[in-house]
């Protein structure tokens, strides 16, 4: 990896208070993101994968500074932005845009698409007023919607089209990084494929960098150059997309990949299914040692005693496991 990191999480930690108490130290906190180090490099798409409670969305929200970070740092293009105030953050706010799962809850239902898109242009005074109409048509064209869509309201569009409007709004800022949190998981498969292709096209045309957060591993494999797999607030494995999908090294990655139902009629064409025991533990009370130890089919004494750090393997990927395959 030669490109410089565009955004970096350095020992990033985010805790939520579950129960406050007036006795100091007796409140209960949940560590949703646990000292995560992760970088997204210029021009790449990093796929961030995990099941519910893995902390992937919380990490995305910390990186975009939608929520505050408890400890550690967010570094954007070499600058520490963790403690910047509203004014200092303005350039960052423009450079980093977010796309959400449910576009209907992030688009104001009472405003026309054209108004929704031109407001941020005016606030950030990106274009002189007379250039805005032309820019809006250009944005519609980029996301594959007709210019007539600008005069309509969000409810007049289908789910896939609304997601295109959400993408257009993010692009209006001419961002350098887009953080997309489950952007296609609410869409039907045939429409999902269209939007996945749009993400790929836009990356090429506008040389964008993506952090793509999703639970659907097929979608993540399709869009990502690199992937990171999270479990209970920690990154368990990260590396090149093909490296990881062709031969997962962490037992959790292996089980996760094997659990996906494959659309082929011939049972011989499937991976050997590893059915994990139990469920994801409560994030407020994670296991001692390796976080995956309660469900790992290969767990040993060392795994219960000591938490493994992310360490590089010969092929360049990082794995947090005491006994990775050699």
């Amino acid at each position: 990896m030669t490109a410089a990191p565009l955004i970096e999480a350095r020992a990033l930690t985010r805790e939520f208070v579950l129960r406050r108490s007036w006795v100091p130290g007796s409140g209960q906190t949940l560590r949703a993101v646990d000292r995560v180090d992760l970088a997204v490099h210029k021009g790449e798409t990093l796929g961030l994968v995990g099941e519910s409670g893995s902390g992937k969305s919380t990490l995305g929200r910390c990186l975009t500074r939608l929520i505050e970070t408890t400890d550690g740092a967010v570094v954007f293009d070499g600058q520490d932005v963790t403690r910047l105030g509203t004014r200092g953050l303005r350039p960052f706010r423009r450079s980093v845009q977010m796309i959400f799962q449910d576009p209907s809850s992030s688009l104001n239902p009472r405003r026309r698409v054209g108004d929704i898109l031109s407001e941020p242009l005016a606030i950030h005074s990106i274009h002189p007023a007379r250039e805005i109409p032309g820019r809006l048509r250009e944005l519609m064209d980029l996301v594959g919607l007709p210019a007539a869509a600008l005069d309509r309201f969000p409810h007049e569009f289908s789910g896939g089209q609304r997601q295109r409007i959400g993408i257009a709004r993010a692009l209006a800022m001419e961002p350098r990084l887009i953080v997309a949190d489950e952007p296609v998981s609410a869409l039907d498969v045939s429409v999902q494929a269209q939007v996945v292709n749009l993400f790929a096209d836009l990356r090429e045309r506008l040389s964008l960098t993506y952090l793509f957060i999703a639970h659907d591993l097929g979608v993540v494999r399709q869009v990502s150059t690199r992937v990171a797999i999270m479990y209970l607030g920690s990154v368990m494995e990260t590396g090149g997309t093909d490296t990881i999908f062709d031969a997962p090294a962490h037992p959790y990655t292996e089980a996760l990949l094997s659990a996906i139902p494959v659309p082929v009629a011939d049972p011989a064409a499937r991976r050997r299914r590893i059915i994990l025991k139990g469920e994801i533990p409560n994030a407020a009370n994670p296991p001692k040692g390796c976080k995956f130890v309660t469900r790992c089919p290969y767990a040993q004494d060392l795994c219960r005693a000591e938490r493994p750090a992310l360490r590089p393997l010969a092929d360049g990927r990082l794995v947090a496991c005491h006994f990775p395959p050699s």
Binding site: V189, S190, Q192, A193, V196, N197, A200, L217, G218, V219, R221, Q222, T241, F245, D246, L257, I260, V262, P263
Partner: peptide, 13 residues
């Protein structure tokens, strides 16, 4: 339109 989990990744789905 289902993104494949193994084999070559199509440039476009």
């Amino acid at each position: 339109s289902i993104p494949p989990l193994t084999g070559p990744r199509p440039r476009r789905l």
